[in-house]
Design a protein around this nucleic acid. Structure first.
Ligand SMILES: [Mn+2]
Ligand SMILES: [Mn+2]
Ligand SMILES: [Zn+2]
Ligand SMILES: [Zn+2]
Lengths: 126, 126
DNA sequence: AATATAACGCAACCTTGTTGCATTAACTAA
DNA sequence: TTAGTTAATGCAACAAGGTTGCGTTATATT
């Protein structure tokens, strides 16, 4: 797969993610671009951008899907695994750049891990 | 809130969680008890048992809700926060007893964290 | 046994996300 | 530059997980 045509939707969504580095939920994009694009289109473009290694996705607080820019991923290699932070006050979500060392678990093989930290972001921190 | 009446549904669900210590998804319970209870009832009882500090819930792989027994929680204090493990082979989910030390993040306050580790469980480990 | 009301079943609904299909618009090459 | 090819789009309908309102049932209390 992969994005092959530079369509209006691809262009607009790419710009959305390039203008800031915070994560954006599919839900928010659909709402925000409701008058411009159909939700199906948005879901499909996000899918493709993820396949391309341009965006990565993860599940936020209520199990809804968020997307953020990738750093150095390709369509063949998605090696951009890191924790995410969701602010319980303003809702903002972003990527955290550190890695969390996990203890070995006997007789289990760890393949993926997803860590969502919740609390107060820099803006909402008192 | 809290469970006030010992009904059939409460009894059956409690037994379900007491007979083993693995987590069970609401989805699985609804399917399994489809001929006995309405799904609304199951959702409501699970909710209540959680409020009571008897069960805790978390989101699994596809963002669906899982429940497991609590250890030493009450209706006023839910202090049973720990990682969960979901087997990518057999689908089994369980609670992990270790705690993951998180680095301090400057200017942010960490309140909750949810960690889902995926891989191969003891049974499916080769 | 009579009462009060928590819990239940059912149908209808909500939200997030997906699918099939006819139409439109990018890209390709004449 | 235009015609042809087909990826991408819009729309409507659907799916899964979960919630809500309301009339009925069953548990606990007297
Ligand atoms: Mn990220
Ligand atoms: Mn647990
Ligand atoms: Zn914030
Ligand atoms: Zn397994």
């Amino acid at each position: 797969m992969g994005v092959i045509r530079k369509t209006k939707a691809v262009e607009v969504l790419l710009k959305e993610f390039n203008s800031s580095s915070v994560a954006i939920s599919a839900k928010a994009l659909i709402e925000q671009l409701r008058d411009t694009f159909n939700k199906t289109t948005i879901y499909r473009v996000l899918d493709k951008l993820e396949d391309d290694g341009i965006l990565h996705s993860f599940l936020g607080k209520e199990g809804i899907k968020w997307y953020a820019k990738c750093n150095g991923c390709t369509s063949t290699e998605h090696n951009d695994v890191h924790p995410h932070f969701q602010c319980l006050n303003c809702g903002r979500v972003d990527c955290l750049s550190f890695t969390v060392p996990l203890p070995q678990i006997p007789n289990r093989k760890i393949e993926v891990m997803q860590l969502l930290i919740q609390g107060r972001c820099e803006e909402c921190f008192v």
